[in-house]
Design a protein around this nucleic acid. Structure first.
Lengths: 251, 251
DNA sequence: CGCCCACTTGATTAATATCAAATACTGTGG
DNA sequence: CCACAGTATTTGATATTAATCAAGTGGGCG
C-alpha cells in the first residue's frame, strides 16, 4: 500500500487520516504467477486491482495471434479505476512477473472518494497520467525508431519505478524477457536483441533480464527524446496539510 | 449539439429534460480554420471543447519535428473532459478541417453532472470509449501492417461517423489529405499513397480527399481485422425513460 | 496563364522481420 | 556435481516492408 501512497504524493499531500484511509483500502494481497491473466478480455470485473509488487501488463491480441502490450503496471498502480462504466473489458490484464495484487471493491472506492475528495482527485490524477503515458506510447510507436523506442521505455520505467522507491543507484529490478520488450515496443525479438546490444555498446544501459541499470541517464534521455513531463510527476501542489508548519506561511 | 446527444444515446437513453439540458450546455459555436491549433501543449485550458462540425485531432510532436496524430474528433466528441485535474496539457489539439466548436465551462459541466447523474455517466462513458480507441490504435501501430492500419482506420471512421449520423449510403465526408492519414498511421505519405491504391484496386474503398466510400464493408473489416467491440457503441442499457411506453413492461 | 499544392510514379536505400542455427542459461533428477 | 531438457539469447543470412529521394502529373485558383 506504501507504493500507492508514495505515488499519489507526487500529486498531492495527504493528512495522516487520509493516509490511514488509503492504507486500509483492501484485504490481503493475492499472488499471481508470471504470465497469468488477471482479467481477460470480455470479462466484467467487479473490483479494481492494486498492484503491490511485481509488474503487470495490459495487452490486446488480434485473432491471428499477434499481440501488443499496451502498458504496464508497477507497484502502486491501480488497473482500471473506470471499469465500472463499460460493460465488458476490451482488453486483458496479466501478470508479467510474479505479482502481488490487492482487490478493492467498487463500494470501497466509492466510500473512500466520498469521504476524502482529495483522495478521489489523486486517484483521478493517476488515471489521467496513465492515459498520458499511452499517448506517449502512441507517439513512440508512430515516430520513434526501434532504438529510440526501447531507450524511451527504459527512461520511463526508471522514472516510474523511482517514483515508488524501486530504484537503487541507477538500477531497477526488471525481470523481463526480450520477448516482453518486443511485445511492448511492437518489434520482433531478434530486433530487440540487436537494439539492446547497441544500447549496451553505447554504454547507455546494462540489462540482463533481471536488472536494468542506466549508465548515463542524460545521454539516454537525449537519445530517446525523453521528456518526463508526460508523467506529470511534479505536480504536487503543496496543498496545506497538518504536516506543513503554520509558521512557514507568515514567515 | 444534436450529434452529442445522438452519440451519448448509444450508451443510455435520456428523458426529454435531460435532452434539453444537454442542448443548452454551451454558447454559440466558434469556427476554427483548418490546421489551426485549438489547445496547445503546455496550455492550461479552463473549459472543454465540443466539436459540432468538422474533424479535429489530438497530436504530439517530437523536438525534431516528427509529429504523430493520437486520435481524432468527429461531431459530437468532447475534447478532454478531464483536463481539470492535470496542470498542463501534454499534447495539442487542432482543427484538421474547418471546424465548429462550442466551449463549455468547467462550471457548466459540474452543474450538469450534479443535476443529471445519467448525463455524467454518459460523458464518462464517452471518455472511456476514447481511451479504448487509443488502445486499439496502439495495437494497430504495433501489430497491423500498413494496409491493415489504414483499412482499420477507415472502418473506425465509418462506424464513428455513422454513430452521429454522418454516413449516407456507405459514404462519409472526409476532407483529409494523404499527409493527414500518414500522421495518423505513422507511415510516410508516399507509402500511404501506395496503400490507398492497393485498397482501391481491391475494390474495398474509394477516397478522393473529400469523401470516403466503403465499397465492401465486410471485406474491409475482415482485411483490417476490425472488430467494433472496442467502440462500445452497443451498450445502451435501455434504461426506462418517459419515452418508453409503460404498457411494454407488463406485456 | 502560371503557380502552388497535393498526389503519383519510379528507383533506391534503410529499417526491420523472418528463418535457421548456435550458444548460453536455468532448473531438475540422478 | 553432472547431464539433460527446455527456454532464452545471440548470431548470421536473407527477405520484406516501408522510408527516402527525385522527378513527374494534375487540379484549383488568383
Amino acid at each position: 500500500m506504501d507504493a500507492l501512497i508514495r505515488k499519489l504524493e507526487h500529486f498531492s499531500q495527504f493528512t495522516d487520516e487520509e493516509r490511514r484511509a488509503l492504507g486500509t483500502l483492501s484485504d490481503l494481497p493475492v499472488m499471481v504467477g508470471p504470465r497469468q491473466d488477471i482479467i481477460r478480455e470480455g470479462d466484467n470485473p467487479t473490483g479494481v486491482n492494486l498492484i503491490v509488487e511485481g509488474y503487470a501488463i495490459r495487452y490486446k491480441a488480434l485473432p491471428d495471434g499477434r499481440r501488443q502490450i499496451l502498458g504496464y503496471f508497477v507497484a502502486g498502480d491501480i488497473c482500471d479505476l473506470r471499469v465500472f462504466v463499460l460493460k465488458r473489458m476490451d482488453h486483458s490484464i496479466a501478470a508479467l512477473t510474479q505479482v502481488a495484487v490487492r482487490v478493492i471493491s467498487e463500494q470501497r472506492i466509492l466510500d473512500m472518494t466520498d469521504r476524502y475528495p482529495r483522495i478521489m482527485r489523486a486517484l483521478w490524477w493517476a488515471t489521467l497520467v496513465e492515459e498520458s503515458i499511452s499517448r506517449e506510447w502512441l507517439l513512440s510507436m508512430g515516430q520513434r525508431t526501434a532504438a529510440e523506442r526501447i531507450a524511451h521505455l527504459f527512461c520511463e520505467i526508471h522514472h516510474r519505478a523511482r517514483a515508488v522507491g524501486l530504484v537503487e543507484g541507477n538500477s531497477v529490478p526488471l525481470p523481463l524477457r526480450q520477448t516482453d520488450l518486443a511485445e511492448m515496443s511492437g518489434l520482433s525479438v531478434v530486433h530487440v536483441n540487436r537494439v539492446l546490444q547497441e544500447l549496451r555498446k553505447r554504454r547507455l544501459i546494462t540489462f540482463d533480464g533481471q536488472m536494468l541499470t542506466i549508465l548515463d541517464i542524460d545521454q539516454l534521455a537525449t537519445f530517446a527524446l525523453f521528456d518526463p513531463l508526460y508523467l506529470h510527476l511534479d505536480e504536487s501542489r503543496g496543498t496545506i496539510t497538518k504536516r506543513q508548519p503554520i509558521s512557514a506561511v507568515g514567515a
